[in-house]
């Protein structure tokens, strides 16, 4: 295989421009999805079966269907209805950018909810009981004891979720957005060199994953320091 190195190099500025959009979408979706997941995870472990069912239906749908379907359902599907097109939400739903951001948020929010639920349930009973004995309850108990502990337990799984979200964001290209993959496909439409351009795009994704994985490893080491064997 002979690669066209010149074209690969020329495509780099545009692909990096697409990378910025990819990063922006992923970062915003992760923050919003993370915020969404906290109350939902708390509902998921509630003792009230009705309260439990609602977030379960949500996570079930978003974890049980492909992201591509969710994206198309939201972007092209909702527009089928006059009601939606005339609602106050239309100015937001009509934008591909917002559609992608909302769907990514709901998607990563669903996975994060389940990760966090598992972590909350893994918080040792003794700690919760001890806090109760001290007179803590409700919000304080969650804020001071359960959530801080759960975050640490969830950290490794959440690290994986970030990587998966980064990879899944490539689907933004299917609804007209010029993210890294979208930019690559647009450049290919001009150069007809899919292998070369996809290789450059792939290298950028790999570099991003590498940075994320190592950044997360540092964070984990810091946050979970107390679990490590003492060296001195």
């Amino acid at each position: 295989m002979n690669l066209e190195w010149g074209v690969m190099l020329e495509s780099l500025p545009r692909l990096l421009q697409g990378t910025l959009l990819t990063l922006e979408l992923v970062a915003l979706a992760l923050v919003a999805g993370g915020l969404l997941s906290v109350p939902l995870a708390m509902l998921r472990v509630s003792s009230n079966p009705v309260l439990r069912a609602l977030p379960l239906a949500y996570t079930f749908f978003f974890r049980g269907t492909p992201l591509l379907v969710q994206l198309f359902l939201f972007y092209y599907g909702l527009a089928q209805f006059e009601v939606v097109r005339e609602s106050i939400f239309w100015p937001i739903v009509r934008e591909a950018y917002w559609s992608a951001l909302i769907v990514f948020t709901l998607n990563t929010g669903a996975y994060t909810t389940e990760i966090l639920r598992g972590a909350i349930q893994a918080v040792p009973h003794g700690e919760v009981e001890a806090a109760r004995a001290m007179g803590m309850s409700g919000g304080t108990l969650y804020r001071r004891i359960v959530l801080p502990r759960a975050y640490r337990i969830a950290l490794p799984a959440y690290g994986n979720e970030i990587i998966l979200m980064l990879k899944a964001s490539a689907l933004a290209s299917t609804i007209t957005l010029l993210d890294l993959t979208g930019m690559a496909r647009t450049v290919i439409a001009k150069t007809y060199l899919p292998v070369e351009i996809f290789l450059v795009a792939g290298a950028i994704y790999l570099a991003l994953t590498f940075l994320l994985v190592n950044g997360f490893r540092l964070l984990e080491r810091r946050v979970l320091r107390f679990q490590q064997p003492r060296t001195a």
Binding site: I163, L166, K167, A168, S169, A170, L171, S173, T181, P194, V195, F198, L199, A201, G202, Y205, L206, L208, T209, F210
Partner: peptide, 13 residues
């Protein structure tokens, strides 16, 4: 490689 590349890109490549 496989864990770092989007599946969509892998399919296309």
């Amino acid at each position: 490689l496989m864990r770092g590349l989007p599946e969509l890109l892998v399919v296309l490549i």
